[in-house]
Structure formats: structure tokens, C-alpha cells
Design a protein around this nucleic acid. Structure first.
Lengths: 197, 197
DNA sequence: TATGCTTGATTGACTGATCAATCAAAAATA
DNA sequence: TATTTTTGATTGATCAGTCAATCAAGCATA
């Protein structure tokens, strides 16, 4: 088995196995053995490459955050107007890879983790801040900074709320209705503010 | 020590200790010993009265849900108009007893629990359904059933989102701004819909 | 009023299982 | 042979749950 250059392959396999295992279980009470087995390696190897369970979890969070961030950036890149950028953030937040049952469950589990793990908390705070500033930047061009900040908070709260509520439902996630609810919020808010200017 | 009639006293103390302990830790990885110590009794007594950790957790959830439900009912009782009832639900959702750091953390932990524990899931589903039907009943009187259902979903998502986001912040919860964001959502939505009728 | 019985309350000590982490050694490649 | 990859076996710690024993308060009886 041991060919040279296996490290990045194994790291990736273990991280993806962690997402799946956590997603299936719905929480972080998964063992290193389970994750390793799902990745097709021994538990000892997982320790070898990540140094411990905590660090495997953090690496998994970073992976999820990086994917999410890449999606947002791609969406922003192909948008022309500020209004389109808002829609892009919303749409990418519910992109199929993100709004999957396993991914949603993992996000939720990591939110809880952030309550007690400062590094996990810091990572989530970074994500929240970026999302917020992207939204504010776009919204401020339409309705000014003050209202932009408020609407951005409403959008962010609604996105997170739809995620957490989704975690309690059965069946496949309904992306379309989530996006529709958000778009309706944005439209209604912008209509009200523009009229008030 | 052992006076008769201690059972209800101890049950209550243990449940409240569970909320505090879970709230401090931020997750459900608390031991029976910790909860029992915080309640001032031995771990064995906690097992004696609740039969196990799982059932203590479920009893704790029921306690939280019952308090929440009582708050909502009280708010509805003192409201006259449908619009007031919506505001009452919002305000009571962020009532000081509910929107406390420890309580919020416990809610979040129980949301995760519901991913793997069917009974926990059932309890949360009951709460969600009641909240939804209360909101829809009030909103339908103002904008009709179709829009009422949609706005109710938006409100519920935003409430849950503000809870989960609150869990990541430091310092005391800011109830006022949470309520303001929700009220703004409701006002803007109702204005748009009424105008469209 | 004193005596002893019953019952609920309470605990300390123990057990069995689980799991993260370690390490020395094996296996495969370069 | 030297290096990287990989694992089996082991350890040490943690905890939920159990159980037999203790303790205090009421209750009945004499």
C-alpha cells in the first residue's frame, strides 16, 4: 500500500469521511475509529496525520468553510449589479453541495462545538464576518449603509434559521423555497427603503 | 436529611442544574456527576429519579418547552388584535428567561440532540408546529392564509437564526435589537401584502 | 411516652464498556 | 539501506449505570 505522497490523499479522505460520519450521526460523538474506517484506514493513521481528534475536527471545519467561501466568491464574480450580488450570496448559501443533509448536520454540530472550543468559535466568527461584509457592501450601494447593515443582519439570521430548521425536517432539503423566502425578504425590504429615500 | 416528599424538589433541582450545567459547558457532554453535584445530590440519586441520562435530558427539554409555551400563551392572552398577537409571540420568544446565555446554549444543544434522538426530535417538532400555527392563525386574519403561512415561516426562521447567531457572540444578549429586526420584518411584509390586496 | 417497625431518601463503592492516544514494529517503496 | 506509510496491540482515563447498605422520619402499639 504505502506509496510515497499519500499524505494529502489520506488527509482529504479523512476529512471527507469526518463530514459524512458526523452528518450521519448528527453530532460530534463519533469515534476516530468510525471516521478512519469510513476513510478506509486505521485509527492510528488518523492520529498520525492530524495529531488528535480535536485537530481533525478543526481541519474538517476549515474544509467546510473553504468550500462555502469559494462558492460565495464564485457567485460574486459572476454578478454585475449590487442586487445580483445579494442574490448570489443567497443562492450560493443554499447551493446543493452546502444544503445537503450531511453538511447541514455537520454545520450544526460545529456550531455547538464553537460554544466550548475557542478555535472553532474563531473560525465561525470569520465566516460570519465575511458573509456580513459581503452583504453590507452590496446593500449599502442600494439603500445606504445604515439600512444595509440591518438588512444584512436579517438575511444572515434567516439563512442560519433555515439551516437549523432544515435539520429537524425529514426528506430532501427544499432549496427553492428557502431561496424564495430570502428573495422575498430582500425585495420587500429594498422596496420599502428605496421608496423612503 | 431525608424528609419525605423530597421527590418533586429533587426532580426540579436536577432539571434546573441540568440547564445550568449544559448552558455553561455549551453542549451535552456533561456528566451525571456534574449535574448531580450542581444540584447538591449524589449521582446515584439522579439515576434513581430519572432512570438514566437520556431521560434526564428529555425531562429537561420538556421543562424548557413548557416554560416557553407558557410564555407564549401568556403573551397571546393579553393581546387584542391579530397584529398584537404576532408581536406577542415575537416578544415572548425573546423574553429575558428564554434569551439567556445558558438557555440559548441548551436549546442549541438539544437541537443537535434531536438529530439522533427521535423523542427529542418529536418534542422540538411539537414546539415548532405550535409556534407556526399560532403565527399563521394571527397572520391569516390580516393577509389571508397563503401569505400568512409564508410570513410565519420567515418569522420562525428569523427567530431561530437570531438564537443560533446569538450563541456565537459574547456579552449579554441584546433582546431589543432582535425584536426590532423581527418587528421590522413583520411590518414590511404586512405593508407589502395589504397594499397588494 | 417509649419502643420498634416500615418506608422513602440517599449514598459510596464498584463494574463494565468505551475510546483517545501511544508506540514499537511491519510493510512497501525509493 | 533509508524513508515513508501503516497498523495491531496496549494503556490509561472517563463514565453511565447498579447495588447493597445506611439513615431519618413517621406510625403504630403497648
Amino acid at each position: 500500500m504505502p506509496r510515497v505522497g499519500m499524505e494529502p490523499v489520506r488527509r482529504k479522505a479523512l476529512i471527507e469521511a469526518a463530514v459524512e460520519t458526523i452528518g450521519e450521526r448528527g453530532n460530534l460523538d463519533v469515534t476516530m475509529s468510525e471516521i478512519a474506517r469510513s476513510a478506509g484506514v486505521s485509527p492510528a493513521l488518523a492520529h498520525h496525520y492530524f495529531g488528535g481528534k480535536d485537530r481533525l475536527f478543526l481541519a474538517t471545519m476549515r474544509h467546510l468553510l473553504a468550500e462555502f467561501g469559494a462558492g460565495i466568491r464564485a457567485g460574486l464574480a459572476e454578478s454585475k449589479t449590487p442586487r445580483e450580488r445579494v442574490s448570489a450570496v443567497v443562492a450560493r448559501s443554499f447551493a446543493p453541495e452546502q444544503f445537503r443533509t450531511a453538511t447541514i448536520a455537520a454545520w450544526l454540530a460545529f456550531y455547538v462545538r464553537a460554544q466550548s472550543d475557542p478555535e472553532a468559535r474563531r473560525l465561525l466568527a470569520v465566516y460570519a464576518r465575511r458573509l456580513h461584509s459581503n452583504l453590507v457592501a452590496a446593500l449599502a450601494e442600494i439603500v445606504g449603509r445604515t439600512d444595509g447593515v440591518r438588512i444584512a443582519e436579517g438575511i444572515a439570521a434567516m439563512i442560519d434559521g433555515l439551516y437549523i430548521r432544515r435539520a429537524l425536517k425529514d426528506g430532501p432539503p427544499d432549496r427553492a423555497s428557502a431561496i424564495a423566502l430570502l428573495e422575498d425578504y430582500v425585495d420587500t425590504q429594498l422596496a420599502g427603503r428605496e421608496a423612503a429615500e
